[in-house]
């Protein structure tokens, strides 16, 4: 079970949280100006990186606040949690996932 550092409450177990998917996807200010393709991209297309991923989390069974987190999808390590509307202080642009950390999965295959 992950241990997640809520920016408002501190470290709490994963069961108190809900993950809200990829972070930093702003709702367009004028959706009607978007083409069908662009709107569909906004609605449905998400990154699925092997490595650092910026995610939305909600401390739903705690303070109820939404915040963002940088998590390494390989090691499950949380690099940083930070409030909605701010940028992370560490790393390159989030959600690119171009720099996966080394796999810690024991390779068992011959």
């Amino acid at each position: 079970m992950l241990l997640i550092d809520c920016p408002y409450c501190g470290k709490r177990p994963e069961t108190e949280f809900r993950c809200g998917g990829q972070a930093h996807i702003a709702r367009p200010t004028d959706p009607s100006a978007l083409s069908d393709a662009d709107w569909s991209e906004h609605l449905f297309v998400r990154a699925n990186p092997r490595g650092v991923h910026a995610e939305r989390w909600n401390h739903i069974h705690g303070c109820g606040r939404w915040f963002n987190a940088l998590r390494d999808t390989v090691s499950d390590r949380f690099i940083e949690t930070y409030p909605v509307g701010s940028e992370p202080t560490t790393g390159s642009h989030p959600s690119q996932g171009t720099e996966p950390t080394r796999s810690t999965q024991t390779e068992t295959r011959a």
């Binding site: 709702r27 909600n58 109820g64 606040r65 939404w66 909605v84 509307g85």
Partner: peptide
């Protein structure tokens, strides 16, 4: 809450 906190704070 999601919209209030994250889209229209």
């Amino acid at each position: 809450e999601d919209y209030l906190q994250t889209e229209w704070p």
